[in-house]
Design a protein around this nucleic acid. Structure first.
Lengths: 136, 136
DNA sequence: CGGCATCCGAGTCGATACTG
DNA sequence: CAGTATCGACTCGGATGCCG
């Protein structure tokens, strides 16, 4: 990144730059949608949870505190349709469904976990910042 | 979780493990809130945008397609109170306010951008997955 | 067991108007 | 220019009930 003192920070990125990583800033770019699935409230937790390996629906529900069936199913579908999660259904009674990460899902889940780990690691600092701000 | 052949897959993570990175799964953990700020729809874009350096309010508004004033102000406040964004106000007329990343903000913004970059890099694959799924 | 459909309240979001 | 205030639309998310 460029120094704070840069005098002429191109007001808009070059086209090349925008194509490389910037069309995220474009309102209509589909990447925003994918990003939303991945960074959604439950999406993050599901991805990290599945890094531990295959889980059944109810296992996930128990593991992820506070998630409802509806949101779990809904988020799993979104992640599945994006190709991050693999859903395997066994036609037995009672039904048995397993969820696991695809190779692509494993990659992104790793990134997400890195982010989550960072936050947990710095959580005390963050909370102190907030507290200090509240006093002032 | 259970690898097909694993004989003794600890059903729950050890306490140590849970404290190291796992209380994210606890419903009440404040880390979830911080994570929400960072991964929120506009939070992601603001952080990445500010990686390019200091921006004024209206610069951000122009740069981030589709954001409303309200959400921009609101999200900036959240990120500021978490200590990721620094707000600098110059008491002149017309008002002049600059937003930049704190050291901590720079760190996390880097992580977020890595994530965003990964998605954009793999976007075509993702969209193909979706399309294939739509056919079937 | 693993969902889907429906309903409904609470919160979020965006457009507009107004203030310092 | 940089917000805040207000309001309506809309979405999110939980609870319930039903079906494979």
């Amino acid at each position: 990144m460029h120094a704070p003192s840069s005098p002429a920070p191109a007001p808009t990125l070059s086209l090349q730059e925008q194509l490389r990583r910037g069309n995220l800033f474009a309102e209509a770019c589909p990447s925003r949608e994918v990003l939303q699935h991945v960074t959604s409230r439950w999406g993050v937790l599901i991805l990290v949870a599945l890094l531990d390996g295959t889980h059944r629906f109810s296992e996930l529900r128990r593991k992820i505190g506070g998630v409802s069936e509806k949101m779990l199913a809904q988020t799993l579908q979104a992640l599945e349709s994006d190709g991050f999660v693999l859903r395997t259904s066994f036609p037995v009674v009672p039904p048995h469904v397993e969820y696991s990460l695809t190779p692509m899902g494993t990659e992104i889940a790793g990134q997400v976990q890195t982010l989550a780990d960072w936050i947990e690691h710095n959580l005390s600092t963050i909370l102190q910042t907030r507290a200090a701000r509240a006093e002032a």
